[in-house]
Design a protein around this nucleic acid. Structure first.
Length: 923
RNA sequence: GCGCCUGUGGCGAAAUUGGUAGACGCGCUAGACUUAGGAUCUAGUAACGCAAGUUGUGUAGGUUCGAGUCCUAUCAGGCGCACCA
């Protein structure tokens, strides 16, 4: 009986499905373990061989944990809302739901073949109303909340209203982007609309006028993490800045907690660092600069308070609210011209040009420490969105201020001893202060760090500002002018004010539309829907939510996917708690992984979930690149020359489908059939073969290097695919796919099979295993157990191969040995393990087979080999009884004739004995 | 510019964390078997050298009896952030 993987895999796949082998249930008597993969967007192209890499890695871990007695939750679902299905719908008229369903079916088929232990009863789809009901529910909760900065958590907005009614904004600890202040009387005198508008400055989900990344080609706004270098990540279309009224999430209120939370999770340093960068903590001070001749102040933020004596001018962002207050009549025309110019530049142009521009406002500000008057400029090198949108410029110690000062010929005052600012600014926070003392504040002679601290103290004492922490993280823009997304549970009342749809009306279903394009009047596609009104007849919001909405809390829904009363039941959540192991790509470092943590923390604030962080450990699988093959056509002919002969000809490399190449040798017949123009191609061969060239490139259709996992499964079986993907290298590393090496692992499985069967007969016996065989297999237990814990699967697979080779050469047929091997192999190659598990006479399924324990007794050696090093090289070996002490080993080594030959009768300078390893003799 | 990561055979990669560098697999070479096949098995395979030996982990130093591993500098590649005050 040969290893018939096709038959085995089909049979067990069916069995697992029929018997719901991988279904998980809450069981308080057993410890839980939650293994999660980032769920895929079901694209039309299907899976290629790179996609399952992470799934295989997590599947191995999930199966391993189960064998170790954990109650494992390992679900899978689909991130089903997204742009590609909608773009496809626009082109073809095909409803995105139809496309999505079709793609999901295809994904499921591909995933099933690979033998994952997903609990499919828990599948979620973000576009399913039963699912997005809870996305909408969370949005309503955020709408009904504000961020209490004293308690450092979200609280009901009603509490804020009560505070306003009693005290106005006095002692109000609420996160806001508004600087407005009002008394209780003023609040109480406000109209309903005014109150609503004011509250929008506090809600966690709010409607705000913000500068957004507008992508005209896609007809929608994009989040910061969906834009890179001025173009959209999806599609690569140009993106411009535009002031728009949009739904936003007050993610910035959580910046501090998102930052601190990173210390409590087990993620790689690089991804934590990426998040830290994105959150952008900076500690500094806010200071008020009086506008000369008025009682108005300009608030600035600086991390270099110590440089206050070197401030020679101020700069406002063009969008700054202060601009209007400082423009004088004679500068009005110049300022307007500049603002106009800036507005017409896209962010991309601004970045590319990088030339100094700006305009004088006409006004002066008073330096609060020196009392000196300094000019106020307006320039786009200051960003409205960071800090206060206004800076104090210190050209001597900031390169951007320096460039500006040079351009406008403004004074440059050095403040650090020995700093040469004739050619460039001195930006380092290092040195001794100078030129920095007056009767109010003395910094001269201090180190920069001391000066910063001293200045901060002074600012507080003198009441001209305060110590302030600033974050780069901005609020998330939550509206998309698109069809294929979650509708907002929001309608607009008679005053055109947004109002929440009642929770009892959720889910608010996505309506049908005739076309998936904006309306003639430029409204989002939902504007085409008939009867798109709330139960009270008022019009509903036309935007939909962005992609990250549905993926932010999906891991919670898996815990309790069919609950119609709650996102997740409290007791159920208290059992599964959080994801213990999360596996996915690094591309979500600043998107999904931030939003999801934010969303989780918000739910945590209300006690809906019991853990402040959603993902305890994170493993980032690497990308699998493609390995392209090339043929070389001799110019102006239809003749192709083999790789190693091409240097004699003038050739053009042409991508050739990797599926008609094997070990870099071209299948000429298939090549001729591949494309009509190659039908009568001629070849110059080497050794009777046509050898192709190769290169590592991204796996993509256009490079003809896409390898489909289905093809591999058909040819070698899922177990071989799984083992090979793991054998390629560390899970975290990016590496090229090269089908060439797959024979090696396939051979391993065949050999294993061959150890069980001799023809149709079972070869195994109940004989006692030899000490040698036991040693080999217990070494394997030790190695594989240690490797799995650190995701070093490639070395595990190697260890299996070594063990099988050893058992094979010692002709071991002892059942007890193979019983252990099957248990160990089960997470890696579940199909063949399942089959062999039953061949060994076991009942049940191998995924419940107990994980074997290494018995160190078997590994003990009676004697130990020491390598003797002389002059830094291994020279000979000695063998001594196990447990011989170091002194004795040294004596034996020196007594050896070989050592004597090197020593030539002398004595060694030094002898080092490393226990059980080596003796180093220094002469 | 700031921050993080990675450099080891023809290729993918190992190295018990400071102890015989290159495990394991691919490829390659030779051989065996065979109704030539993209099957199986055996042996070899870092480089130089007939050999004893010598040299080898991007480069240059350093610490150490001993460095792929630790320290300093430097080069190359990748990733993240970026007029962030």
């Amino acid at each position: 009986m040969d290893y018939n993987f096709k038959e085995i895999e089909q049979r067990w796949q069916q069995y697992w499905r029929d018997n719901k082998v991988y279904s998980a249930k809450v069981d308080n008597s057993r410890p839980k373990y939650y293994v999660l993969d980032m769920f895929p967007y079901p694209s039309g192209a299907g899976l290629h061989v790179g996609h399952p890499l992470g799934y295989i890695a997590s599947d191995i871990y999930a199966r391993y944990k189960r064998q170790r007695g954990f109650n494992v939750l390992h679900p899978m679902g689909y991130d089903a809302y997204g742009l590609p299905a909608e773009q496809y719908a626009i082109q073809t008229g095909q409803h995105p739901e139809v496309t999505t369903k079709k793609n999901i079916a295809r994904y499921r088929e591909q995933l099933d073949k690979i033998g994952f232990c997903f609990d499919w009863d828990r599948e979620v789809r973000t576009c399913d109303p039963e699912y997005y009901k809870w996305t909408q529910w969370a949005f309503l909760k955020m709408y009904g909340s504000y961020y209490n900065t004293a308690m450092d958590k979200a609280c009901p907005i009603e509490e804020l209203v009560a505070h306003f009614e009693k005290y106005g904004t006095t002692d109000c600890n609420a996160h806001t982007n508004s600087t407005d202040e009002f008394t209780a009387d003023q609040w109480n005198a406000m109209t309903k609309v005014e109150k609503e508008n004011t509250l929008m400055n506090y809600r966690i989900a709010y409607r705000g006028n913000t500068m957004v990344n507008w992508c005209p080609k896609l007809g929608t706004v994009l989040a910061n993490d969906e834009v890179s270098e001025g173009v959209s990540l999806r599609g690569g279309y140009p993106v411009e800045q535009k002031l728009m009224s949009q739904w936003c999430l007050r993610v910035s209120a959580y910046a501090g907690r998102l930052l601190r939370g990173l210390e409590t999770v087990d993620w790689t340093d690089s991804i934590k660092e990426t998040q830290r960068n994105w959150i952008g903590y900076s500690e500094g001070a806010e200071m008020n600069f009086n506008i000369a001749g008025t009682d108005e102040n300009i608030l600035i933020f600086t991390t270099r308070a110590d440089t206050i004596f070197g401030v020679t001018f101020m700069v406002l962002a063009p969008e700054s609210i202060y601009v209007e207050k400082v423009v004088t009549d004679d500068q009005r025309a110049a300022v307007d011209a500049y603002l106009d110019e800036v507005k017409h530049k896209t962010e991309r142009e601004r970045l590319i040009e990088k030339k100094v521009s700006g305009v004088f406002s006409g006004s002066y500000a008073v330096n609060p420490v020196t009392g000196k008057e300094i000019p106020i400029y307006i320039s786009d090198y200051v960003l409205a969105g960071y800090g206060t949108g206004a800076i104090m410029a210190v050209p001597a110690h900031d390169s951007r201020d320096y460039a500006f000062a040079r351009h406008f010929d403004l004074p440059i005052i050095p403040l650090i001893e020995g700093a040469d600012v004739s050619e460039e600014s001195f930006d380092a926070k290092d040195g001794i202060m100078t030129n920095s003392s007056n009767d109010r504040l003395q910094l001269n002679g201090l180190q920069v760090k001391e000066a910063i601290a001293r200045t901060k103290e002074y600012i507080a004492e003198a009441g001209i500002g305060r110590v302030k922490v600033n974050y780069r993280l901005r609020d998330a823009i939550f509206s998309r002018q698109r069809y294929w997304g979650e509708p907002f549970p929001i309608y607009y009342d008679e005053d055109n004010q947004p109002q929440p749809v009642s929770e009892s009306e959720l889910p608010l279903l996505l309506p049908e539309v005739d076309k998936f394009l904006p309306t003639e009047t430029g409204e989002p596609p939902l504007g085409r829907a008939q009867n798109w009104v709330a139960s009270n007849g008022r019009p509903l919001e036309l935007c939909t939510m962005p992609g990250f909405a549905g993926s932010s809390a999906y891991y919670l829904r898996y815990m309790d996917p069919h609950n119609s009363e709650a996102l997740v039941d409290k007791d159920v959540n208290a059992y599964w708690r959080q994801v213990d192991l999360y596996v996915g790509g690094t591309e979500h470092a600043t998107g999904h992984l931030i939003y999801s943590r934010f969303w989780n923390k918000f739910l945590y604030d209300y006690g809906y979930v019991c853990e402040p962080e959603p993902y305890k450990k994170l493993v980032n699988q690497g990308m699998i690149q493609g390995r392209s093959n090339f043929v070389y056509r001799i110019k102006d002919t239809n003749k192709f020359v083999s790789y190693n002969l091409k240097k004699d000809y003038d050739t053009t490399p042409i991508h050739v489908d990797v599926n008609i190449v094997s070990n870099d040798a071209l299948d000429i017949e298939k090549f001729k059939a591949w494309r009509p123009e190659f039908a009568d191609a001629e070849f110059i061969l080497e050794n009777g073969k046509y050898i192709c060239g190769w290169a590592i490139e991204k796996m993509s259709k256009s490079m003809f290097n896409v390898v489909n996992p289905d093809d591999i499964v058909d040819r070698y079986g899922a177990d071989t695919l799984r083992l090979y993907e793991m054998f390629l290298g560390p899970v975290e590393a990016s590496k090229p796919w090269d089908t060439n090496g797959i024979d090696g692992v396939n051979r391993f499985l065949k050999r294993l099979w061959g150890l069980f069967f001799d023809g149709d007969n079972l070869k195994l016996t109940d004989e006692k295993a030899s000490a040698e065989a036991l040693k080999s297999v217990h070494k394997l237990i030790k190695k594989v157990t240690a490797d799995i814990e650190v995701f070093s699967y490639n070395t595990s697979v190697a260890a299996f191969m070594i063990c099988i080779n050893e058992l094979s050469s010692m002709k071991c047929a002892a059942r007890e040995v193979y019983d252990i091997i099957v248990r160990l192999l089960a997470p890696f190659a579940p199909f063949i393990s399942e089959e062999l598990w039953h061949v060994l006479g076991h009942e049940g399924t191998v995924c419940d087979a107990e994980w074997p324990v290494c018995n160190e007794e078997y590994l003990k050696e009676s004697s130990v080999k020491y390598t003797v090093m002389i002059k830094g090289r291994p020279r000979f070996n000695i063998e001594v009884a196990a447990g011989t002490d170091a002194k004795e080993v040294e004596r034996l080594a020196l007594a050896d004739p070989a050592a004597q030959k090197w020593l030539e009768g002398g004595t060694p300078k030094k002898v080092i004995v490393v226990p059980n390893k080596l003796v180093n003799i220094v002469i």
